[in-house]
Design a protein around this nucleic acid. Structure first.
Lengths: 117, 117
DNA sequence: TCGATAATTCCAAGATACGAGAAATAAAGA
DNA sequence: TCTTTATTTCTCGTATCTTGGAATTATCGA
């Protein structure tokens, strides 16, 4: 990932409203959540929500599909992974113990294939 | 981690200059880098650098110690880990394969204790 | 103490982001 | 087609961020 994309992604997430949206979508999985449902759950104005969804989408962190009258939003996990990778790149150079807590996190989240946890 | 701290951290990183500083410190390890050296390597004005270091410090992402005339800055890995954890919290609920790439990253970075990679 | 180096603080202006009201567009059903 | 629901676009006042010049503080060596 390039610096420009990383800054764009971090900027998109650097706002309480957008961070809440993104985390909701991350937790929602591939199924996603409709814009209206997000607005209801977070209690935000539809125009504000729409603007924020746009910012997240432009940063490549989310995408959407239309289903009837609703627009369903989903997280782009690949982009999230790339962003995290960009942040911790070479963090372990020479000192594996430094970022061990992150690996623990991966293990606790059961993100590892069988046999690695 | 609370939403407020997460936004503060992401905001601090949502700037090309500060992101470059932070990554440099992440890669530098516990030894850290002096403010002047950072300014030289990134070619930024000392006052701008100082302001940015302050923002990163206030977000809890870096800390410093004085050594003679120099002030050495280091990354706070615990805070970085907490921030990443906040972002991917519950991301795997029901779908472990979704964030498997992140676990791969941890493995590739040799962040895992012996026997887990 | 004086001069040089290292870093920070203060301040102002220009740029950008933010939230909200109002209007517009898209889709579904009567 | 008309109405309702769902979402987006337009616009604008306000708040915040960013940057650079100038001055200030801290440390070391002569």
């Amino acid at each position: 990932m390039e610096m420009k994309n990383a800054v764009s992604g971090l900027s998109a997430l650097a706002n309480a409203g957008r961070l809440s949206i993104f985390r909701m979508l991350v937790q929602a999985g591939r199924e996603g959540v409709a814009a209206g449902e997000i607005a209801r759950r977070l209690d935000v104005l539809p125009n504000t929500l729409s603007a924020n969804l746009n910012i997240l989408a432009n940063a490549g962190l989310i995408e959407n599909r239309r289903e009837g009258r609703s627009v369903i939003y989903t997280a782009r996990y690949e982009q999230m992974t790339e962003l995290l990778e960009f942040l911790m790149q070479d963090c372990c150079a020479g000192n594996p113990e430094v970022c061990a807590p992150l690996a623990d996190l991966a293990i606790r989240s059961r993100c590892l294939p069988e046999g690695n946890a």
